[in-house]
Computed example of a mutant assay.
Amino acid sequence: MTTRKTSRQDHTPATLSEADGVRYLHLDSIWVQGAMRIRKPLHLELEYIQRMMAWMLWRPSAELCRGRAVQLGLGAGALTRFAHSRLRMHTTAVEFNPSVISACRTWFHLPQDTARLAVVQADAAHWVADAQHWDQVQVLNVDLYDHDAAGPVLDSEEFYSLCRKTLVPGGLMTVNLFGRHASFALSARRIAKAFGSDQVWQLAPTREGNTVVVAANGVTVPDREELLRRAAHIEARFDLPATKWLRLVRPLPLSILQTPEGEGDD
Rank of each mutant, 00 (worst) to 15 (best):
I101Q: 11
A122Q: 15
E47W: 02
L64K: 04
H147S: 13
A54E: 06
L167Y: 00
A76Y: 11
A118G: 01
Y48S: 00
S99V: 00
Q50S: 03
V137Q: 04
V70N: 03
L154Q: 07
N97G: 11
V139Y: 09
S156Q: 03
A129Q: 14
H84D: 03
R86T: 15
R105K: 15
M56N: 01
Q50K: 13
F178K: 02
L162N: 04
Q50I: 02
W107Q: 14
R88D: 14
L117R: 06
G151Y: 09
S183R: 13
H84I: 01
M56T: 04
F96R: 13
R86P: 01
I101A: 09
W58A: 13
R81H: 04
R180N: 12
A118L: 02
V137P: 03
A69S: 14
P111M: 04
E63W: 07
L154M: 15
G73M: 08
L117Q: 04
R116P: 06
Y160T: 01
G179H: 01
A150L: 15
L87E: 06
R59K: 15
A124H: 05
Y145M: 06
R105W: 13
F108V: 08
A76T: 12
S102D: 09
V94M: 03
A54I: 11
A103K: 09
E47T: 10
V70P: 02
E157S: 10
K165I: 00
D130E: 15
T91G: 06
V120R: 10
R81W: 04
A62W: 10
F178W: 12
D148A: 08
Y48P: 00
H109Y: 10
R68P: 01
D130K: 11
Y145C: 05
L57C: 03
R68M: 09
E47I: 06
D146G: 07
Q71K: 06
S85E: 14
I101E: 10
L172V: 13
Y160V: 02
H126N: 13
I49R: 04
L167Q: 00
S61G: 08
S61H: 08
G179W: 00
S85D: 14
V175P: 02
A129R: 12
A131M: 12
H84L: 07
S183L: 11
D130H: 14
E95H: 12
